[in-house]
């Protein structure tokens, strides 16, 4: 119950009261069960109140909770017989991207996603989940291999964005992202993308051109990280909360804009409180969409994906009115 976010303070406080009462009850051999039940009831009510009205900024903080499950956690929970593959065959093996082949309910699929580190050392190796060009090219290699063998593709999106570094630029960061967008549009197999944490910028989208795009309830997806937007727009990165609200980055917002097809529910308080149950919900959703897509021809899948992205955008067009 530690590691609570500021807006979860009242919950921690309530929990402390309950724990204290329990301890006193045991120590002094007094029956507080009625009291405790009443407090637990109040705790549940408070929980409902807090988690059913989360702001964009609060969801952003939940999406960034350090113990939030990562791509590898979902892969291990959801799939069987995962074989991890490595490298882009051009330059190196970017550990900010993980992927390979696995079975989903007995069906062979390709799975690929951004991978954050679990601790500092891991994060340094994985560039905090921010890929270099070789990471995007590795992902593309996996996806084109899936395309060749007719395997459906499942991607997990979880990155603050592409890695902003000099060597990344020298090796063609822009080209690598652009190529993924173009080539993903041509894939002749079902592509299902799940935003599990942060979906930041082109680095997220480079794994995001799917027939179906799903988002976990407390994940975010935006054109730039709210911190980046705040520092560019208001020259003040500390206004990230404000930017998070203004940019409309939550799953609910994106469902309304028609960008995503479904919100996958999380346990109250976030995926990190029950990774197994969250993974089950993700698996159920992926499987349902996969079943829907599996009846489509390769041409229909390409066309379906094209239509989805072709229709995005809000503008005024007087000549059509």
């Amino acid at each position: 119950m530690d590691n609570k976010l500021p807006f979860e303070g009242p919950l921690s406080e309530q929990r402390r009261k309950i724990d204290h009462l329990k301890k006193v009850g045991v120590e002094q051999n007094i029956d507080f069960s009625e009291e405790i039940a009443r407090l637990e009831e109040a705790y549940k009510k408070l929980e409902d109140e807090i988690y059913s009205n989360l702001s964009g900024a609060q969801i952003m903080h939940l999406a960034r909770v350090h113990s939030r499950p990562t791509t590898l956690d979902y892969i291990n929970e959801i799939f069987e017989d995962f074989i991890e593959l490595h490298g882009d065959r051009l330059y190196g093996d970017d550990l900010a991207i993980v992927g390979g082949i696995a079975k989903l309910n007995g069906v062979a699929v390709t799975v690929v996603g951004h991978q954050r580190g679990k601790d500092t050392k891991d994060n340094i190796q994985r560039f905090f989940g921010s890929p270099h060009p070789e990471g995007f090219r590795k992902a593309l290699r996996f996806m084109q291999q899936a395309n060749k063998f007719g395997r459906p593709i499942i991607t997990f999106i979880d990155t603050k964005g592409a890695y902003p570094g000099d060597s990344a630029e020298a090796r063609g960061q822009s080209e690598a992202i652009a190529r993924n967008l173009k080539e993903m549009a041509l894939l002749r197999v079902p592509v299902i993308c799940v935003v599990i944490g942060e979906g930041g910028s082109g680095g997220a989208l480079a794994l995001g051109v799917g027939n179906r795009v799903l988002m976990l309830e407390n994940s975010i997806y935006s054109v730039i990280s709210p911190n980046g937007a705040a520092s560019i727009l208001w020259k003040d990165a500390s206004k990230a909360d404000q930017a998070a609200e203004a940019m409309k980055i939550t799953a609910k917002d994106l469902l309304e804009f028609g960008i995503i097809e479904e919100i996958v529910p999380e346990p109250k308080g976030g995926a990190h409180l029950d990774p197994v149950r969250t993974a089950e919900a993700v698996k159920t959703a992926i499987w349902r969409h996969l079943e829907e897509l599996s009846g489509m021809t390769p041409e229909a899948l390409v066309e379906d994906r094209y239509r989805k992205f072709r229709s995005v955008g809000k503008f005024a067009a007087p000549e059509l009115v």
Partner: peptide, 15 residues
């Protein structure tokens, strides 16, 4: 235009 802007990258590339 946040996410709508981001998706223009996919739209133009797909076209």
């Amino acid at each position: 235009e946040s996410i709508l802007s981001l998706m223009q990258m996919a739209k133009t590339s797909a076209a």
